[in-house]
Computed example of a mutant assay.
Amino acid sequence: MTPPRTATPPAAVQCGIAAFGLAFGEDRDVAATAADYVDNPERVVNWGFRTYHRAPDDVHATGLAHAAAQRALDRLGLAAEDLDLVVVANSDLPEYAYRDGAAALARELGIERTQTLLLTEGCGAGVHGLYYVASTMAMQPEVETALFVAVNRVSEYHRNRMNVFSAVLSDGAAAVVLRRGHGANQWLATEQFTEPEHCDLLRVDFGGTVNPVPPEGWSSREAPGGHESVRRQFGDDPVVLQRFLTNRYARLLEVVDGACRRAGLQRRDIDHLIYLNDSAASIDAVAEPLGVPLSRTNAALAPGHGHMGAADQLVSLAQQLERGEIASGDVVALCGISTDRWSATLVRA
């Protein structure tokens, strides 16, 4: 006999997403603009993305985060001063060095003396960031309402949005307001771990303390892309590369299983999977072993957005809920990878 699902999350705190807010850069057609970024546009078009979002030159991560946050607050009729915690996950370069992006968002919202936290772990931060909200609520009973924003705004000076890996990078933000005891879209559990061996795989080689400025004449349009970095890393050894790719998906399953154990659930309890905005084949490689059909993933939404870094999963969750594709009580597994970090969070709609 199949044991019944756990009625409530066996966690130290119960909190749920009470509202979403989304903000995107301007829509751009992939096929019409690929030649502006790469010399082989057919390769980019073949990835399957139709549209990506490009923010205007004067709109940066804080602006996108603020727009998304304000929309989430407005849906609840909340003022920013009602927030007890503000967490920001920024998966691309910040506007300025030596500045706290979470504090910058708090200033835009017009609040002060509110706890803030900035996450910079890359694409997976939009998944495991929910854990830091829940853990703060568990440790601080006075924290009732929190804002979590995941934002990605590509710096085209540093990175070619169509030549990092097999996805078109995109500008967008997703904000959620979480409230203690909220009965819908409840956080159940989060699992994450790091394997640091390949942490340099997609690094940008200048802009930090090692190489503060690029070589003379350097341009992201002409610089080697992520595929060249992968070849350098694995020395054109197809066996070693295949092992890396296989482990990539195996670790995703491992981290989802870990989140299930924490929530007292099993793979068969997962109704939906939301992964990074990747190709349908890549998403299915994660979903199929979990027993989740492709129709219950973000595969249909991904081509219209591109890869928005840490914002991917929350954007898809918001849109699938709005469309009625996720029913009340369904368990949704959000999962993702940064270069060296695997993350999974379970949410009960």
Rank of each mutant, 00 (worst) to 15 (best):
S170L: 03
D171A: 02
A173F: 10
A173L: 04
A174I: 05
V176A: 00
V177C: 02
V177N: 03
V177Q: 04
G181N: 15
H182V: 11
G183A: 15
A184N: 10
W187I: 06
T190D: 12
F193H: 14
T194F: 11
D200L: 04
D200V: 06
D200S: 10
L201F: 06
L202A: 07
L202H: 13
R203P: 00
V204W: 14
V204N: 12
D205A: 13
G208V: 01
N211V: 15
V213D: 10
V213P: 00
P214V: 05
W218I: 01
S219H: 12
S219P: 13
R221G: 03
E222Y: 06
P224A: 11
Q233C: 08
D236K: 08
D237L: 09
D237V: 05
P238M: 03
V239M: 11
V239D: 03
L241Q: 03
Q242A: 09
R243T: 10
F244T: 01
F244D: 00
F244A: 05
L245G: 02
T246R: 15
N247I: 02
Y249S: 02
A250S: 03
E254H: 15
E254L: 09
V255W: 07
V255C: 07
V255D: 11
D257L: 04
D257P: 07
A259E: 08
R262F: 05
G264Q: 10
L265F: 01
R268A: 15
I270C: 00
I270W: 01
D271H: 09
D271W: 11
H272F: 09
H272Q: 12
I274G: 12
L276W: 00
L276R: 07
N277I: 10
S279N: 05
S279P: 02
A280W: 01
I283K: 00
I283E: 04
D284W: 02
A285L: 14
A285R: 06
A287G: 08
